[in-house]
Design a protein around this nucleic acid. Structure first.
Lengths: 212, 212
DNA sequence: TAGATTGTTAATCGATTAACAATC
DNA sequence: TAGATTGTTAATCGATTAACAATC
């Protein structure tokens, strides 16, 4: 199916995974079609927003009927490129790196962790989830020999910027950053931050507001 | 200092931790004052936005001078309630729960994990970061006997909703949710989601856009 | 005082909601 | 056909940027 993006706004893009998740759940419940109104009630959005969001990418519904759930799931997967294969490495083999490895393992096989890296000799030369944990000194060589799509940063703040530079210098074009470091990248590099600090301090703000 | 919030918009609130982080770094570099213009260049925002953001909470700068960094840090910490004490428990003592425990340990002592819980007998009755890991069956009793501010959910999607209900039924008012479950809460409960799915699929979207 | 920079108002831009004609 | 619901345009709302008078 042709889904020509008219450069959708990021708030719209970030809602797509939520649509995807809810539609998958509906399908599991045995439901095959849904109207924007019913979906809006389930998700706590307006029906108008759902129709507006989807129409950034195309007209996937049918007047008088609604949306076919199975079709819509495929469309969204197509837009988000969920079903491509992503080869990943994780830098940092502590609890965080391992937790991310578990998360990716539970994904439907579209992403795969091919290697993990750590500076700590106590963590390297081991296997986790069938994945080799290499020493950081082997990173450069590894990236030369393997086609890696995504470098996942699970390192302390102190080494975040340096590690990011390292992987970019060795050809990495996309970074998923779990470190609390502020990483500035050039225009041809994609970075997505899991901003744990922002999240925690937003929570403490909301707690204090909630008490008022 | 009086900082009367005129109900600041959430995008502003979520930028405050970034201001905080950058100001802390500047202070460490030995800088004591900064103009909105200089800060905007450092952070990649507009000077206007910075002034606008801060003025939701009060006038903390000085014409012709700029902002005193130390003072501004304190103001932001006050707004975000960073320096309150937060007693936390973590549900889920796998790699994710442990990673979160490490993160909180590295915070400046404002938050503390008092207990961890798990269903897996192989993980319970152990100690991690000096924290006891209890069985989930002990949760209810624990919450009766201890004043807990934040329940952190590091459980699989399948049990997310149920565990959230559990903690709320036992008096918890704030949840930091790392599970991929969609958790709906009442109006008096605060929830902050670390939406890993949204983040990953946004990354895959950006990667595909980047290739165009 | 002159220069710098804020706080704040006004203008613009973007995102969400409402409305409704098109159409299944 | 009548009813339902989309796709899309218009209206509203909110957030960002620009401009500038106030003032340190």
């Amino acid at each position: 199916m042709q889904t020509l993006s008219k450069n959708a706004p990021m708030p719209v893009v970030r809602r797509l995974p939520k649509y995807h998740r809810n539609l998958k759940e509906l399908l599991e419940e045995g439901i095959t079609k849904i109207s924007s109104k019913d979906l809006s009630e389930r998700m706590g959005l307006t029906a108008s927003q759902i129709r507006q969001d989807l129409n950034y990418f195309g007209g996937f519904g049918q007047q008088g009927y609604g949306y076919n759930i199975e079709d819509l799931i495929k469309v969204i997967e197509d837009i988000l490129s969920i079903n491509n294969k992503y080869n990943c490495i994780i830098i940092g083999a502590g609890n965080l790196g391992k937790a991310i490895s578990n998360y990716i393992l539970n994904l439907d096989g579209n992403a795969k962790v091919l290697a993990m890296f750590d500076v700590d000799a106590g963590k390297t030369n081991k296997i986790f989830n069938d994945i080799n944990i290499y020493n950081m000194s082997e990173l450069k060589d590894y990236l030369k020999k393997n086609e890696i799509d995504i470098a996942i940063l699970a390192v302390p703040k102190s080494s975040g910027v340096e590690v990011a530079k390292d992987v970019i210098n060795n050809g990495i074009k996309s970074i998923w950053n779990f470190s609390t470091a502020d990483i500035a990248v050039g225009n041809d590099i994609v970075i997505e931050n899991m901003a744990i600090n922002e999240s925690f301090y937003t929570l403490t703000y909301l707690i204090s507001e909630n008490k008022k």
